[in-house]
Computed example of a mutant assay.
Amino acid sequence: MNMIPIQHYLLVGAALFSIGLAIAITKRHFIGILLGIELMLNAVNINLVAFSRHDPEKLSGQLFSLFVIVVAAAEVTVALGIILRVYGRFRTVDPDEVSELKK
C-alpha cells in the first residue's frame, strides 16, 4: 500500500488554515467570516486524521475529528440564527454597519 507522508497532510492543513484565516479577517460579511472559520475547522480535522493515521492503534484523532464536526455543525446553526436576527433588525450583514447592541 502506498502511504502518503504525514508532511503532505500537514502542509495541506496549514494551507487551508491560512486561507481560512485570511478569509475570516478580510471578509466584510458575516457569512464570509463564518466560511473562513469553517475552513479553519476543516484544516484542524485534516491534521487530526493525519496524526491518527500515523498511529493506527489509537483512534483518538478520528474521535476528536468527529467532535470537531459536531461542534462545527452546532456553531453554524447558532451563527446563522444570529445572522438572521441581525439582518432582520439592521437590514445588513456587514459587521461594520451593526454598531449598537440595544435599540
Score class of each variant (00 low, 15 high):
Ile33Ala: 02
Glu57Leu: 14
Thr92Asn: 04
His8Asn: 09
Glu57Ala: 15
Ile37Pro: 00
Ile46Gly: 04
Ser60Arg: 06
Val76Asn: 10
Ser65Glu: 01
Gln62Thr: 10
Ile83Asn: 04
Val70Glu: 03
Pro56His: 06
Leu48Asp: 01
Gly88Lys: 05
Pro56Trp: 08
Met1Cys: 12
Val71Thr: 13
Lys102Trp: 14
Gly61Asp: 03
Arg91Cys: 04
Ala72Tyr: 04
Ile31Trp: 12
Leu48Ala: 05
Leu34Val: 08
His54Met: 09
Tyr87Glu: 12
Leu80Val: 14
Ile25Pro: 00
Arg89Tyr: 13
Val93Glu: 08
Leu35Pro: 00
Phe51Pro: 01
Ala22Gln: 00
Ile31Pro: 00
Met40Asn: 03
Phe67Ala: 09
Leu66Trp: 08
Lys103Pro: 05
Ile69Gln: 10
Ala43Tyr: 06
Ser18Leu: 15
Leu35His: 06
His29Ala: 06
Thr26Asn: 02
Lys58Thr: 12
Phe17Asn: 07
Arg28Asp: 05
Leu66Phe: 15
Ile25Arg: 00
Ala15Asn: 05
Pro5Thr: 02
Arg85Leu: 12
Ala43Gly: 14
Thr92Lys: 06
Val49Ala: 12
Leu80Lys: 07
Ala43Val: 03
Ser18Tyr: 07
Glu97Thr: 06
Glu38Trp: 06
Lys58Asp: 11
Asn42Ile: 13
His54Gln: 12
His29Phe: 10
Lys58Ala: 12
Ile69Phe: 15
Met1His: 13
Ala15Cys: 13
Leu34Arg: 02
Leu39Val: 03
Val68Trp: 07
Lys27Gly: 00
Asn2Phe: 15
Asn45His: 09
Phe51Leu: 12
Asp55Glu: 12
Leu63Gly: 02
Ser18Gly: 11
Ala50Gly: 08
Thr77Tyr: 15
Gly36Phe: 05
Asn47Tyr: 12
Val76Ala: 14
Leu48Cys: 07
Pro5Phe: 04
His8Gly: 00
Lys27Met: 09
Val44Asn: 06
Asp96Ser: 14
Gly81Cys: 11
Ala43Ile: 06
